[in-house]
Design a protein around this nucleic acid. Structure first.
Lengths: 173, 173, 173, 173
DNA sequence: AATGAATGAGACTTCATTCAT
DNA sequence: GATGAATGAAGTCTCATTCAT
């Protein structure tokens, strides 16, 4: 991941990946038939990691707090694994990631979808298409993390509350 | 642009670019010393286009309407030139775009910055760091356009109002 | 070597070299990072061959005979491997051969140097700087071989004695 | 010449030659149909210069002194125009110089040939084939000049006498 | 006559993939 | 199963030459 994002996919030979992975090129090809499939596999692997990280906590509080906890968890994950973020950010629009992979990656946000729908039913969250809200949230989060990763770690904290306020104001009824 | 985004940078040889441009490879190299510099130049060219497109209109209305007009103009530009959007979206995080180019690209949002600051002074817009707001807005816009470009043109209209509502609610005091 | 000297460095693509070597281009690049380094390596390889060829024989005769035997050995080597000679002759002044390589190539004439110094001590050879004598000898030898290679093999013999006479007269006290 | 020898023929584009010559590429092609012919023309031009330089002086002294004057004149020419020397030295064995050009270049040493033959007739110079002597002399001279050009100018003087002594001893009866 | 922008053939070099070990 | 040397297709870039100005 680190190699792939630092230099770009095309500038990272399989030999370098094998070396960094402490294995031989041939071994990689025993598990992934092509470089492309390796990258798609990494993509899905990270998506999985992400979901596991985020759905870990299931506290019992108000819907708003639950929602913001999710949102914060997303951010935390990406700030904690900046290489993962950089990788995903870069692959998002790359022709290397197949549609099939993208579909698979999406199918894991059930919990948050349910939460938002519940919020809409209770009149707390704006009555819009789920897709609109999800896209909106993803956009804000990506931009926020990308920004945070560009500034020093000790300066990050102060921006979180503002971000959460904007996000909540955006979707709340 | 089209080739570069459809196939990816590395899968697009200079020979193909030259052919599509109706010129010889050598000619391109007379103007851009490397493929990388060509891509950086396209990046800046689009940024320029964008700014010109957006700052065209200077209506005399309320700050909120002015702001949303800007926001809509951004969206319009990108929906109108989907190739440009795809290109920028893909290059944004690519190691091919140099820091220097990114800096140059940024230095053109004075108008919108001034508008937001005025809104903050008037108590209309949340008192947060400009950067936080700009990053937030950029994130929402990119996600929105990317989404819109993925659905049929006649279905797009209905989502715009929702998007604008979320955006405004997010930043308004 | 043959290709490189016959056609010239630049007129000999690596693909042709690989073909002649019965291998793939990539394989060559696994051992020599650039064409230039390949050529420098060939240069040093020949220098080595040469030294081994020349220092083979250690007869026990007069200093003059020993010296002329060395000189003849040099000539023999180059006449025996005309491709080597052509290569060295052409690369000698080429900007492709690095200073470093030239230095390395030089460091192998200790035996002949010692012989000349002994001759000087015994009053048999002119008391001049070793460098002056070595350069002189190298010049005569190169010219002689180049000439010989231009004429038919059976006509060569008769010129050797004359050459040796001139060489010895030149350096003898 | 300077460009051609410093970088090598292949590394010197016509555009660079034109620039250094203060003219346009097209203009060069009006006079020399190809790069190769330009180089051959330079070769002949230098050969001509050389002959004119050497045959300038016709003193009336002993044959030995006359001969050594010629030899010194050759050396002087090359030390005075080191670029010419480097050029000729490099082109000597290059496949770029055509046989025809080489032949033309040779046809200009009549004076020195006559001098040597006279010396042979008078029993002053060894009775060998003229070609053998000419090749020998050319070899010594080239090596000497190449060596001299590699050392500081103020250190050169002291080696000349030694060189002349070796050369004369080599060919004198 | 002088020019130099345009051109594409062809150079060097990389690297995904294979396969004998 | 692991390995990495071998491979050549394909990429970037150069530059001799042309030709409209």
């Amino acid at each position: 991941m680190k190699l792939l994002t630092e230099k770009g996919i095309q500038a990272t030979p399989m030999s370098a990946i094998a070396k960094a992975a402490g294995t031989g090129m041939g071994t990689i090809y025993n598990y992934f038939p092509t470089k492309e499939e390796l990258i798609n596999a990494i993509y899905l692997y990270i998506k999985n990691l992400e979901v596991q990280f985020i759905t870990r906590k299931t506290n019992e509080s108000s819907l708003k707090i639950k929602f913001l906890d999710y949102y914060k968890a997303f951010i935390d994950f990406n700030l904690q694994y900046p290489d993962c973020f950089a990788f995903m950010d870069q692959m998002q629009n790359s022709p290397v990631i197949s549609c099939h992979t993208k579909e698979k990656g999406k199918a894991e946000f059930l919990q948050i979808i349910e939460l938002i729908q519940k919020g809409q039913d209770e009149g707390i969250i704006k009555k819009m298409s789920i897709e609109a809200i999800l896209q909106f949230l993803a956009g804000t989060m990506t931009a926020y993390v990308r920004w945070m990763l560009g500034i020093k770690e000790n300066e990050r904290k102060k921006y979180l509350d503002h971000q959460l306020r904007m996000v909540w104001d955006a979707i709340k009824e």
